[in-house]
């Protein structure tokens, strides 16, 4: 099993969700984060004072999947989130040793869906 973590543009969330549902990936966790990679961040002005390089709002997705779902999930995220501009985000894939469903105590591939 793998844990896929993706950082995407906030306005792309709906598209990514739609592509994930199409790929039959339903279990996702979404959170609001700040960050930037190659983007320089944004300039803000408060009472005439300029601040440069502030972090940008991003969305972080966490998706636990079986091996067979890793590629479809990555493809779905790219399909939904790609604009071609700097700032589209990143996908990280981590090894997931165990997965437990709290309601039933089931473990492993059974629990992940």
């Amino acid at each position: 099993m793998k844990l896929i973590v993706a950082i995407i543009q906030p306005h792309k969330l709906e598209e990514v969700k739609e592509k994930l549902y199409k790929a039959e990936v339903n279990l996702i966790t979404v959170s609001e984060v700040l960050g930037h990679g190659q983007q320089k961040g944004v300039t803000e002005i408060y009472r005439g004072a300029k601040e440069t390089g502030n972090l940008l709002r991003k969305i972080r997705l966490e998706i636990a999947v079986n091996e067979s779902f890793v590629e479809p999930t990555i493809k779905a995220i790219i399909k939904g989130a790609q604009t071609g501009n700097i700032g589209d985000g990143k996908i990280f894939v981590l090894d997931l040793e165990r997965c437990i469903r709290i309601r039933t105590g089931e473990e492993g591939s059974l629990a992940i869906g």
Binding site: V42, E44, I45, Y46, R57
Partner: peptide, 15 residues
């Protein structure tokens, strides 16, 4: 990106 940041270079809420 939103009009707050692009038109006014301000944001209403910090995260």
């Amino acid at each position: 990106m939103g009009l707050d940041l692009t038109q006014h270079h301000e944001r209403a809420y910090t995260v």
